[in-house]
Nucleic acid binder design. Structure first.
Lengths: 195, 195
DNA sequence: GTCTATAAAGTGATAGAC
DNA sequence: GTCTATCACTTTATAGAC
């Protein structure tokens, strides 16, 4: 029998983060109330405060977790030998990882402004660390004469924006599979860096 | 002498749109109250409703105006002869126009979800019309054998995402001028399409 | 661990005075 | 054209019962 009151901390915590992520991504952080999140989880609003001190901390937790997982996943990725193989690995990794977490990606790019200065700086730092991973690949390729890039910093921003943009239009079951999209984007990136 | 009450409709209307645009872009549509907008303009909240029926209509007005101006400006742009010249014109136009209206660009990509279905469809249609302008250039170049593009639809999305991304990091007075940035991006786009 | 109830403040929008 | 005052409602967050 279902009971209205009981101990579910091990399931409620993850459910709150899951529902908050989806609601924040769909409607925006400011547009979503704690009552809406609670309703989606199946608890009353007051219960949320057992898992987060306030609404902003909930957002920060989602963003921090996402960035940590992104960096950890890239660190664990096979990246082959040489700048060319590393760039291809990065392109395929970025598209694949971001497509599987479109909500979190969207939040990371859009809702940073709802964080306080210290939390903002933390997420921004992690993002920059990720961008630096790509820039180092580009620099290495440039120095090795494998790539022909007018400005590695701009190329970094251009490539990341281009790849991240996939999440705004890609739909599972559409004209192209993830693998086909990754192939096509890799072709464009490869050419763009003069390889 | 300043007076607290009087007729200023010709100045108040534009001021409301200007302040609303900046506030919406900075904090998000849902996070900004009508009272905040009124305070920024220098009137009381009630006065705003002489210029807009409600908050959503104010957002729609900003987005619609931006898209109309974007399409009109591109239509008026010199674009040279042939796909190559047209693509270069598009790249330089897009970067230049978007950099001069970073707030509106940000709104157009982020706050569509706050529109009702009919207003959403209208803005989305204008955006697609703009994207089609680029896609037609790519198709023409592909057919003429000037470009080598695996998929013109994906190339369209990739290029627009890449160019629009400039608004997220460009700062006036930084390391590179607008013209230098446009030169570098044009170099990358040109290579990416195999030209 | 979750509930109900509530405090204190803010929200969009309107009515009527000037 | 603007202001003041206000309605009806929602917001985040907390206190205390169970």
């Amino acid at each position: 029998m279902a009971r209205k009151t009981g101990s579910h901390s091990q399931i409620t915590g993850p459910k709150i983060r899951e529902q908050a992520l989806q609601l924040f991504a769909s409607h925006g952080f400011a547009a979503v109330s704690m009552r809406q999140i609670a309703a989606a989880v199946g608890v009353q609003a007051g219960a949320l405060y057992l898992y987060t001190p306030d609404k902003e901390a909930l957002l920060f937790d989602l963003l921090k977790t996402h960035m940590d997982e992104l960096l950890a996943a890239w660190a664990a990725e096979e990246r082959g030998a040489g700048p060319m193989a590393a760039l291809e690995a990065f392109v395929r990794f970025h598209i694949g990882f971001n497509l599987s977490r479109a909500d979190a990606v969207f939040l990371s790019y859009m809702e940073l402004r709802n964080l306080g200065p210290e939390n903002f700086a933390m997420i921004e730092g992690l993002r920059r660390a990720y961008e630096t991973e790509l820039e180092e690949i580009l620099k290495a390729g440039q120095e090795a004469g494998v790539f022909l890039i007018p400005d590695t910093k701009l190329a970094t921003m251009a490539i990341i924006a281009m790849l991240t943009g996939v999440t705004t239009w890609f739909r599972e079951g559409g004209r192209l599979s993830r693998a086909m999209v990754a192939d096509i984007y890799w072709d464009m990136v490869r050419k763009a860096v003069g390889a």
